[in-house]
């Protein structure tokens, strides 16, 4: 079945999943596509609001210039930093090869 241009496509779902590093099965692609289409359909209501002269709110509070002085504080004990690592090698975190 051809997908209408304006609606979220399976390809876009795959692209988004890849961006988010989420493994996804072919069945899930279709399921998420349909669910996200439905959600996005409801979200279209956003455009009902006239925001042409409205600034965006990225930070809810009026606080500004919140900074700390450049002072050292104790780091974690080495073992505390590493104890949750699923894979490690001595005092390093160990990860799979970067290259495919």
């Amino acid at each position: 079945m051809p997908e209408p241009e304006s609606e979220l496509s399976s390809r876009q779902v795959e692209h988004v999943a890849r961006l988010a590093r989420l493994g996804i099965t072919p069945e899930e692609v279709l399921r998420y596509r349909d669910q996200l289409r439905n959600i996005l359909h409801h979200i279209e209501a956003l455009n009902r609001a006239d925001t042409s002269k409205v600034p965006a709110t990225a930070h809810p509070l009026e606080e500004r210039n919140i900074m700390r002085e450049d002072r050292r504080e104790p780091s974690l004990p080495a073992e505390a930093a590493l104890r949750n690592a699923p894979s490690r090698d001595d005092s390093y975190f160990k990860v799979k090869a970067i290259q495919e």
Binding site: R68, R72, E73, S75, L76, A78, A81, S91, Y92, F93
Partner: peptide, 21 residues
């Protein structure tokens, strides 16, 4: 100290992952 925490920036001489929080 680091950009967003109090850990030391002296990363060249410290033991691996010793300057972390």
């Amino acid at each position: 100290s680091k950009m967003f925490c109090g850990c030391s920036t002296d990363y060249l001489t410290a033991a691996p992952n010793a300057n972390t929080c």
